[in-house]
Design a protein around this nucleic acid. Structure first.
Lengths: 155, 155
DNA sequence: ATCGGTGCAGAATCTTATTCGGTCCCGTTG
DNA sequence: CAACGGGACCGAATAAGATTCTGCACCGAT
């Protein structure tokens, strides 16, 4: 756990507006942003820089359709770690996050320890990941794979 | 199903490079991008515009930490639709995507029909969503909620 | 070999980002 | 109560980047 909003009052309504706008369109020009929230461009710039430093904005990314980069198969893999190796979860998940196919890692409560959102070129690659990087590992007690038919972002 | 990579050859190695770079840093200036992949800025611009039109790039978004905008509680909710209402899934999920708390909707195979990634202000709000928008609906046969302790993007 | 058509590069132009100096507001101190 | 100091903001000036436009080179088809 790094640093969290210890002080939510650190973000005023203008900051929240900026975050909302940038979440929708991460490329909205600073110019337009400033006018949209009612402050000067220069001020807007310093605010956004601050939001980045605080960690409120973790980064800017293009939303690339996996299908277009040769990864049309998506899946959510639920992974259960062997109870006698729970303390190794961190490093393990870290290494998983390094696999190109892995798009998200969700550490969750419940019968599984984390969910892996992956995108692969074909089911064969998917299987390879499951058998070689997960089930084949002495850390993993079990997995459950769910194909993703469609993935939609919220609004 | 809209338009997919019918023609993967439509994307050459330079396009793939651009996508990879923009996925990591969605704000890399066109200038730098061009140099990075070895083409002129003007060419780079037309290529990126094309990638957007094709749908390879679905958009640009700031990655905002939900905790900073007053939504520190995250959960993955597995939702099962009543078998006699399966054909209504589309519209239903569509409406769910409109709830501010909903960040992602994954349509999946398995015992559940889709996964809802949500971020709420507190567990009370989470409960409200589950009881009023999901279980309380005649379409939903059952749900299973998993708290998300941590969410990490892949590399 | 010629005729489109397509994609690229480079210069010119226009837009946007970023920096800088100075002002205002406000809580603190003498 | 008035001067002081810090913080945030604004507007103008400057630097950087985006975008357009024109002409060239390449390639496939006639």
């Amino acid at each position: 756990m790094t640093d969290l909003p210890k002080d939510l009052r650190a973000l005023d309504p203008i900051d929240l507006d900026l975050l909302a706008l940038l979440e929708v369109d991460g490329r909205m020009p600073n110019n337009a942003l400033a006018e949209r929230v009612g402050i000067a461009p220069s001020t807007c710039l310093t605010r956004i820089r601050r939001l980045r430093e605080l960690g409120a904005i973790r980064g800017f990314h293009a939303d690339v359709d996996p299908a277009w980069i040769g990864r049309p198969i998506q899946a959510m893999i639920a992974v259960r770690i062997r109870s006698d190796a729970r303390d190794a979860i961190g490093k393990f998940a870290e290494s998983l996050a390094g696999i190109p196919a892995v798009r998200d890692v969700y550490f969750v409560s419940g019968s599984y320890d984390f969910l892996l959102h992956v995108a692969t070129a074909d089911v064969s690659d998917l299987r390879t990941i499951i058998t070689e990087r997960l089930s084949g590992t002495h850390l993993v007690a079990g997995t459950e794979t769910h194909l993703i038919f469609e993935h939609r972002r919220g609004n």
